[in-house]
Design a protein around this nucleic acid. Structure first.
Lengths: 149, 149
DNA sequence: CTTTTTAGTTAAGTGGGCTTAACTTTATAC
DNA sequence: GTATAAAGTTAAGCCCACTTAACTAAAAAG
């Protein structure tokens, strides 16, 4: 690990700002849609994973299965996601975002992408390609990290 | 804006993963400390800004002044922050993190920094310097963006 | 085939965040 | 100097997330 301090410091600084903005952004967006933050988080989780069961949500957010079931039920009733029976295990449910849910997440993401587009205008084309390359490196590293688990 | 698509796509991919991890991380950390997410957010906001008043919190999180006052009161009673009178405007209060609050935030940040350190082990020294440079570019761009407001 | 474990639901009750409304105190406007 | 606006606080009440407990139904274990 050569020069870990500068790397870490820079990454930290970036993280601080970036996370601050993201969380505030999602919070406001959730409020504007009438959904609570936990509900929105479930939709995001589902967007990320594609599909999951009640117990997955329970684990991810560290809440009881009962709480997960109740939250999901509201989202199902509001038509944001579908809850189907798992053919392989008839006790389990398979949750998937339906169109309304997908569009909601897309809209939320777009709002925050706007900030990134603004960011893009503040840097030159040359810098932009450097940043792109760097982020690709990071994305690849993340994949490696996730695979190992 | 030359090649905006690749840049945007990469930034988006990074953002997705990164935000997901950060939010889950903070959520779990908040729970482990016994604080709620709104309370934790106030501490983070204060860590970020250094100092602010009740009305600032009210605006930032889009809640009523009453709600902000109540949340702050709990944090004051739990000794996470200090609420002093503003000498320039005796109606207003000046909120600052005290030692306990600072250490809490530091601890929370460190936990997520551990992930970044893991990330650092997945990339070569050469890549690391590229990434560092790129993130510095982004940080500078963010500063420019914030100044303009 | 019986027992136990696992996935999920339902119900009752708790706690916390949030709101509105009424109020105090200080600053600003005219 | 009086009126109005602004910063916070307090209280009452609502809603929602969350928990525990009791339950159903299906899978796994023995």
């Amino acid at each position: 690990m050569t020069k870990p301090t500068q790397f870490t410091q820079t990454l930290r600084a970036w993280m601080d700002v970036f996370m601050h903005r993201s969380m505030r952004g999602w919070g406001h967006f959730a409020k504007s849609t009438g959904l609570s933050m936990p509900q929105m988080s479930i939709l995001m989780q589902l967007h990320h994973k594609g599909t999951c069961g009640i117990s997955d949500i329970s684990e991810r957010f560290d809440i009881s299965a009962a709480a997960a079931s109740q939250l999901v039920d509201k989202l199902v009733q509001a038509d944001y996601l579908a809850r189907a029976e798992d053919p392989n295990d008839r006790r389990a449910k398979i949750l998937t975002l339906n169109i309304k849910g997908q569009e909601l997440i897309k809209r939320g993401a777009e709002e925050r992408h706007r900030w990134m587009d603004e960011l893009a205008t503040k840097i030159t084309a040359e810098e932009r390609s450097k940043v792109t390359e760097a982020l690709e490196i990071l994305n690849r590293a993340v994949l490696q990290l996730e695979e190992k688990k």
